[in-house]
Computed example of a mutant assay.
Amino acid sequence: MQRREDVLLVDGYNMIGAWSMLARLKDTNLEEARDKLLEMLADYQGFTGMEVIVVFDAHQVPGTGATFKQHRITVVYTKEKETADACIERLALEKRKRSRQIYVATNDLVEQHVAFGQGALRVTARELLTDIQQNRKSIEKALERPPSQVRNELDNNLKMDVRMKLEKMRRGEQ
């Protein structure tokens, strides 16, 4: 069971390569594939309440790396000579607390074993995509309900004497 303080660490390029719709998009526009991934994970974070951190591998790109918020999720581009796996391992250690669970989303078998060793739970790309899709269906189902089923009428939550007083006021019979 996921709790609000739980953390999901995502290997960004690993998910893009594993999810067919993003893999196809990556072939024509990598930036658009990254944005779509971040949008999907932002929806997931909003639904689950988990803290989501997405790590993109920039170990072959010179620079100091970058960390910023996009769609209210944390996006990390690794530093020069740092792999996404190494960054995820470091973040898993930093984020570990007694009352929270760390989940690592990757299909990289070595990374999964390292995550286990640090007490994190692994989530495969397929499992994460399935969970995201199920959450989306739950949201869509909730939004499709007719307004009459969603209403939270005050009348049903009031004691009878209060209801009677309000009804008299409505009629102008104070």
Rank of each mutant, 00 (worst) to 15 (best):
R72N: 14
A142W: 05
G46Q: 07
R100D: 04
F47M: 05
G172P: 01
R171T: 07
K79G: 03
A105I: 04
E173H: 07
S99C: 07
N157R: 15
A33L: 03
H59F: 06
R170S: 09
A84H: 00
L93S: 13
Q70H: 09
E89C: 06
K159W: 12
Q45M: 12
N157G: 15
Q60S: 10
R126T: 13
R34S: 02
D108E: 04
V7A: 04
A125K: 04
R96S: 11
Q133G: 00
M1Q: 11
I88W: 05
E51I: 15
Q101P: 07
R151P: 03
G65P: 03
M15F: 00
K36M: 15
I16R: 00
L41H: 01
V52A: 00
L154P: 03
A66C: 12
M21D: 15
L109Y: 12
I132W: 02
D6I: 02
R96C: 08
R163V: 08
R122M: 11
F116C: 13
E51W: 07
H113N: 14
G46P: 00
R171Q: 10
M1I: 11
V54T: 04
K165D: 11
V123N: 06
G63Q: 02
S138W: 10
M164G: 12
N152P: 02
T64V: 15
R145S: 01
V123K: 08
V162M: 10
Q149P: 06
I102Q: 00
R4W: 08
A42R: 00
K137Y: 14
S148G: 11
W19Y: 02
K36N: 09
L128S: 01
I132K: 03
K69I: 09
P146N: 14
Q118C: 15
R122V: 11
L8P: 03
K69N: 14
D155Q: 10
Q101D: 11
Q45I: 01
F47C: 09
T28L: 14
K159T: 15
G49Q: 03
Q174F: 12
L143G: 07
L25E: 01
F47W: 08
S20P: 14
V75N: 04
R100Y: 00
L109F: 11
K165L: 13
R98L: 14
K81A: 13
Q118W: 13
D43R: 14
A18I: 03
Q60G: 10
A92K: 01
Q70Y: 09
S99R: 14
M164S: 13
K168V: 02
R151W: 07
E167C: 09
K137M: 12
Q149T: 08
E144H: 11
E94F: 12
A18Q: 03
D11S: 00
S20F: 12
R163D: 04
E80N: 13
Q60I: 05
R96L: 07
K36P: 06
M40K: 12
S99N: 14
T130N: 14
C87A: 10
Q174G: 12
A142P: 06
R34P: 01
D161R: 09
E5D: 15
A105C: 04
